[in-house]
Design a protein around this nucleic acid. Structure first.
Lengths: 250, 250
DNA sequence: ATCAGCTATTGATCTACATCAAGGCGCGAA
DNA sequence: TTCGCGCCTTGATGTAGATCAATAGCTGAT
């Protein structure tokens, strides 16, 4: 079993409504710790485009994405923006021990997050080593993802960037289940061209052009607004520049 | 006190010969845990240019840099390379729970690392929550650094990239102590043009040209091979594109 | 003293992507 | 039905940085 399939499996088992995805690992949890989590949990909803917190603002909670997509971005004084995190369901936001957000957190689609007040969460971390361990694992995964992303930003061509992004979403998207029998992959690409360009370090025009190019060559098929079909995943993978076995970008 | 100065302070207090920099935090440690660390510790030296491990190779230890500089890089099939980690003294290498290296680890200068066999280290992590907590903190710092780096790779101009790199090294370099009385900063930039280009996602020619440009404008002064003087740190900072207060890239 | 092998610099040219600009499509509001 | 507004596409042009190429300094070996 490859690392990728293992990863996909892991995600499908995760619990989106717990900052440490506890369902997947709670065999080791004591039930009263979970009670603690339940007790301090609350939900917040955002519409597509809304900002959850601005960089520098107070952020007195940690959270995990339940449904929808959130992004982390940095902005330069003159307005240049770079996305630095793409949060899908079950992903974690917020840094224990830091009281302000270092990034703009934005709802890329309609979004539901499951939040925990930071204070009790940190106390529980101290009492329950398992939670810290889980968080460490998740953070290490994120760091690996960030480093794969750095390779993309620093060295890939626009075409490779687009192909990579489509493959990344395809792999992570839960509705991956929508895989048709003949090996074609059908799923939602719920990002605007602008969001894609912020992810990839390109302009939205370049994103649009390269999407068109991949479409003309039959590497991807678009259906309606944002439904994407990948007729042959391996063929698209070849356009990413990654070596065939690698690309374990979470 | 700004975040930056706080960070510098932290580093200067760190212990380079312990994977969790324990001197800085060992007030909370039990002494027999430290004994454990001592017991499984060994040193390895490398010459500049030598490879510590290749991506994909077995890596049965974790380590911290004692002296010198190590880099983490990814390589694409056709040889394009991107640096994804720059490890200065006291920085940690290796991922607990992973038996192969995900990156090429290379000695950028002559290098001494303090290594711990992975197995006993992991056992100790289980027994000593404090170590995991420390590792989590360090990993979160690395993740922040990676995200700052992503902004650099995705959105900064070549000039801004160079200025940023020089500032980053200046801030982190221990020999920061070499700060002269009139506010000028003198330190070693122990990276070849090629290493700089791999860090920045540029070619080495572009690095060379931009270094020359900054030199001609008096923003930096070079002395001998790799000694650098920054006559006015704040003026150089303005060239990085970062907002004046931010830029806490570890 | 000479040479081979690095590393760095600088120039000439090319090109991938950015920038500027003009429509087009779909959708909700009036 | 029409208008306005987001979002996307496509074309024309500009440019930052890549690529190709020549040379120079430095170091250590013969």
């Amino acid at each position: 079993m490859t690392r990728n399939s293992a990863k996909i499996l892991t995600y499908s088992q995760d619990c989106n409504e717990c900052p440490i995805r506890h369902r997947a690992v709670c065999a080791r949890c004591e039930s009263d710790e979970l009670e603690m989590l339940e007790q301090f949990k609350y939900y917040r909803s955002f519409e597509a485009g809304q900002t959850v917190v601005w960089a520098g603002d107070k952020m007195d909670f940690v959270a995990s994405v339940v449904t929808g997509i959130a992004t982390l971005s940095q902005t330069m004084e003159d307005g240049r923006r770079q996305m630095v995190g793409l949060l899908l369901p079950s992903d974690f936001v917020g840094r224990p021990g830091r009281e302000t957000s270092a990034y703009d957190v934005t709802a890329a689609t309609d979004l539901v997050m499951c939040c925990f007040r930071k204070k009790p969460f940190e106390e529980m971390m101290l009492r329950t080593p398992h939670i810290g361990q889980r968080l460490l694992e998740m953070t290490l995964d994120e760091l690996d993802a960030a480093r794969e992303w750095m390779l993309l930003l620093g060295r890939k061509t626009a075409r490779e960037k687009i192909a990579s992004l489509v493959c990344i979403i395809a792999r992570r998207d839960a509705s991956l289940q929508l895989k048709a029998s003949d090996g074609e992959l059908r799923f939602d690409l719920p990002l605007t061209r602008e969001a894609m360009s912020e992810y990839l370090g390109l302009t939205l025009e370049t994103v649009s052009r390269q999407m068109s190019a991949l479409r003309k060559e039959g590497l991807i098929v678009t259906e309606g607004k944002r439904q994407i079909i990948i007729p042959d995943f391996d063929r698209l993978l070849e356009e990413t520049g990654d070596d065939s076995d690698g690309g374990f970008l979470v």
